[in-house]
Simulated scan of single mutants.
Amino acid sequence: MMVNLFSVFDPSTSIMNLSLNWLSTMIGLLIIPSGFWIIPSRHMIMWNMINLKLHQEFKTLLGFNSINKGSSFIFISLFSLIMFNNFLGLFPYIFTSTSHLVLTLSLALPLWMTFMLFGWINNTQYMFAHLVPQGTPPILMPFMVCIESISNLIRPGTLAVRLAANMIAGHLLLTLLSNTGPMVNSIMLMMLLITQILLLILESAVAIIQSYVFAILSTLYSSEVN
C-alpha cells in the first residue's frame, strides 16, 4: 500500500538490504542492440547524427580555444546518460533515478565545482570582473556583486532541482490519473487511457528536453570561466 504520494519514487527492490534500484542508472547500456556497435546500422547512423549536431552546438558555446578541445564530448556523454535514465523511468517497474536529488546533485555539483576551481585558479581577474556586469553604475556595484555571487552559488542546486522536479511532476500526474481508473465508468476510462497516452508522449519529449537543458546549461557555465 502506498504510504504517501511520493512513495512511488522510493527504492524498494533489494537483496540482503542492498538496493538494486540504482542499477537502472547504467542498465541503459544493456538495451542498446549489439548491431549498434558492430555494423553501421540505422541506430548508429541516427545516433551519430545526433552526436554531431550536439558537438557543433557545444563547440560553438565553448569557443575554439585549444583548451576546449574534446570538452564537448563530456557534455554529449552527460546528455546521453541523463536521456537514457529519463527514458528508462517511463517503463513500468523501473526505478527513475533522475527523479532523485542524490543523482542530479551528484552530476551538477562536481561539474560546477570543477568550473569554479578552474576559473578562480587560472582566470582570477576575469572571474572578479564577471561579478560586475559591464555598464553597472558605481553605486550599484556592491549589490551586483552580492546578486551575482548568490546566482552563481545556487547554479548546481537549480540544475539538480530542475531535472528532478520535471521528472517527478509527470510521473506524479500519471500516477494520480491511473489511481482513478477503477472508480470510473467505461467512457471515462477510455478518455483516461487517451489522456495517459498523450501524457506519456509528453513525458518522452520532456525526457529529451530536460537532458538537453541540463547539458546546454552545463556548457554555458563552462564557457563563462574561460
Rank of each mutant, 00 (worst) to 15 (best):
T98H: 10
S99W: 00
H100T: 12
H100E: 05
V102L: 13
V102Q: 14
L103D: 01
T104P: 04
T104C: 07
T104N: 02
T104F: 02
L105I: 11
L105Q: 02
S106Y: 12
S106T: 08
S106K: 03
S106P: 00
L107V: 11
L109T: 03
P110Y: 01
L111W: 01
L111F: 08
L111N: 00
L111P: 00
L111I: 13
L111K: 02
L111M: 11
W112S: 07
W112T: 00
W112L: 06
T114M: 11
T114S: 08
M116T: 12
M116S: 12
L117W: 13
L117K: 13
F118G: 04
F118L: 11
F118A: 12
F118Y: 12
G119L: 04
G119D: 02
W120A: 08
W120Y: 11
I121A: 07
I121V: 12
I121P: 07
I121K: 15
I121M: 10
N122T: 11
N123R: 11
N123G: 01
Y126C: 05
Y126I: 10
M127I: 08
M127V: 02
M127R: 09
M127N: 03
F128H: 12
F128S: 10
A129M: 07
H130N: 15
H130Q: 12
H130W: 11
L131H: 04
L131V: 02
P133F: 10
P133W: 06
P133A: 06
Q134F: 14
Q134Y: 11
G135F: 06
P137W: 00
P137Y: 00
P137E: 02
P138K: 15
L140I: 06
L140D: 07
L140Q: 10
M141W: 01
M141T: 07
F143L: 12
M144F: 07
M144D: 03
C146Q: 01
I147C: 08
E148A: 14
E148K: 14
E148M: 15
S149M: 05
I150V: 15
I150T: 06
I150G: 09
I150M: 13
S151W: 15
S151I: 06
N152S: 14
R155F: 13
R155K: 15
P156E: 03
P156G: 09
P156N: 02
P156H: 09
G157K: 06
T158M: 12
L159D: 02
L159A: 10
A160S: 14
A160D: 04
A160K: 09
A160P: 02
V161M: 11
V161I: 15
V161K: 04
V161S: 12
V161G: 07
R162V: 02
R162M: 05
R162D: 11
R162W: 10
R162F: 13
R162Q: 13
L163Y: 01
A164W: 00
A165P: 03
N166A: 09
N166M: 05
N166G: 07
I168M: 14
I168P: 00
G170I: 06
G170C: 03
G170V: 03
L172A: 08
L173Q: 14
L173R: 15
L174Y: 09
L174F: 11
L174T: 05
